[in-house]
Design a protein around this nucleic acid. Structure first.
Length: 490
DNA sequence: TGAAATGTTGGGGCG
DNA sequence: ACGCCCCAACATTTC
């Protein structure tokens, strides 16, 4: 009879350090199968976009060789989790399965089905929270309901978190059962090679656990101490750039938090304030995931349900202009260009671009979310949904609808010299900084000197800022003053 | 994790 | 010396 085997099911936790489920699986001290399942049948909404599939493929390759250095092999299978895993369990006589919870709705359903199957078939299951600072089921407000406002959530989180997490490291894993040991790992990965559509991301990213640690190390010694103000500056490169690493679980938020503890001990109060500002961002990620956990429909239905009937426009040409960086507003086009080229966009510009899509263009926030989902290497259902609903004014703790970003002012404030625009919209690179965020207002002579021909080398604005703003406000007013009953009858 | 409109204040120029 | 206006700077309100 085959000897008993344990299984570690990797989900969004492609790391060895501080991986509670893996630590648990290793404790069994029996042969260990490390499995990753790619489920192409998952609902369209949860199917990763192009950019994140690129990342996933790279990350799995890295992880595969990393597992080999600690004495195991990564097995990659394609199919439904609740079908593939039972087959493996029976085939290899698996007696114990561990994984870290997912929080996306479809992934959760699959995990629940699987868990039921395993217990029914007499094997053990152990699930852990490995991807959040606090399990969503352990954080409720005084009324006993989930938080929907960030600030109280944040206050509570700071009080709840223990001063230190215990970070578990592993140097050696039990080996895989012989039939797996003897297979070439690349045969497992070959199935995923279709995702390897190189798009130039390699210049900007190093997927995998090692890359994640490197990003953190680069950020911590200095940029964290100016984070509070610099984080809003797209022209600087002072953010941590951890988002894709965190999304795929190449580094755990607990590890980051704990590392910050160490640094915070030896710094001034100003340093501590900056560290707190960074932690606050981790808390937004946490908040988003908790919300999605409690509201699985969130990607399609706004948290402020009254907005579900808001009359968004459907204008393909406007959407396309936004997607292809042809809005005529340099700060937005720069952001959209950064997104296409690197698979990432600075958060401040994400907000400006999202505000522009939902308010200036009056397009459905779900259209914007869909595009980000496809093009971001850090595309994360919870974060993406929260961000877009926030911008559209229909989400948790959202900006009120009438809060409309002025692209010129945002540019002036956060890209004062225009170097971000110059970097990503080279057509404008020779334009004086006084007009770089509003080229249509520049005198002819200056445009000529900068080699800019509006409407030719760079588009005119697709909408007039003031008019678009007023139109959005009017539409919102009208929406608010029309009773639901009448809206439904229309 | 706004912006614009509107209101208030205070200093300086100037008759 | 005084009142008046201008306007920048700041505060408040409104969308």
């Amino acid at each position: 009879m085959t000897p008993a085997t344990s299984m570690m099911l990797f989900r969004s936790d492609l790391r060895i350090t501080d991986n509670p489920a893996l630590f648990d699986a290793v404790q069994k001290r029996i042969p260990l199968i490390c499995l990753f399942v790619w489920d192409p049948s998952t609902s369209a909404l949860e199917q990763p976009g192009k950019a994140s599939r690129w990342w996933l493929y790279q990350s799995l390759r890295q992880f595969s060789s990393r597992l080999q250095t600690v004495g195991n092999n990564l097995v990659v299978k394609i199919g439904r989790l609740s079908e593939v895993v039972p087959e493996m369990i029976q085939h290899y006589h698996v007696t114990h399965v561990s994984w870290n919870f997912s929080y996306e709705p479809n992934a959760r359903n699959e995990e629940n089905l699987l868990r039921k199957w395993i217990t029914q078939h007499g094997a053990q299951v152990a699930c852990f929270n490995g991807n959040l600072l606090v399990d969503p089921q352990l954080m409720y407000n005084q009324k006993g309901t989930p938080y929907t406002i960030f600030t109280p959530f944040w206050n509570r989180l700071q009080k709840t978190l223990p001063g230190s997490f215990s970070i578990r490291r592993l140097n050696q894993l039990p080996s895989a059962p012989p039939p797996i040991q003897n297979q070439n790992p690349s045969t497992f990965l070959k199935a995923l090679a279709a995702f390897d559509h190189y798009a130039g991301y390699h210049d900007y990213w190093k997927p995998g656990e090692e890359g994640a640690q490197a990003s953190l190390k680069k950020f911590l010694p200095h940029h964290v101490f100016t984070y509070r103000s610099d984080r809003d500056r797209p022209d600087m490169n002072h953010t941590a750039r951890l988002s894709p690493h965190l999304h795929f679980g190449e580094i755990s938020p607990a590890f980051v938090w704990k590392t910050l503890d160490r640094i915070a001990k030896k710094t001034s109060s100003r340093g501590k304030t900056n560290i707190l500002a960074f932690r606050r961002q981790l808390a937004w990620r946490e908040f988003a995931t908790h919300l999605l956990f409690h509201h699985p429909n969130l990607p399609s239905i706004p948290l402020k349900t009254e907005y579900k009937d808001f009359p968004w426009q459907s204008r393909a040409t406007l959407l396309q202009a936004w997607q292809t960086r042809q809005t005529g507003y340099p700060i937005i086009d720069a952001g959209m260009r950064e997104l296409l080229k690197t698979g990432w966009m600075h958060n401040r510009i994400r907000m400006v671009a999202a505000s522009f899509l939902t308010k200036h263009l009056l397009l459905d926030w779900r259209e914007g979310a869909k595009w980000f989902w496809e093009t971001l290497v850090d595309a994360d259902m919870a974060n993406n949904t929260l961000g877009w609903q926030w911008a559209a004014g229909c989400g948790a703790d959202a900006a009120p609808f009438f809060r409309i970003f002025n692209p010129m002012l945002q540019g002036k404030k956060f890209d004062p010299e225009g170097s971000y625009v110059r970097r990503w919209v080279p057509e404008l690179s020779r334009l004086d900084q006084s007009y770089i965020h509003q080229p249509w207002e520049a005198p002819q002579s200056m445009l000529k000197k900068a080699n800019v021909v509006l409407g030719k080398t760079y588009p005119f604005p697709i909408v007039h800022h003031r008019q678009a703003r007023e139109k959005a406000l009017a539409r919102f007013q009208q929406f608010k003053s029309t009773p639901t009953i009448i809206r439904n009858a229309l």
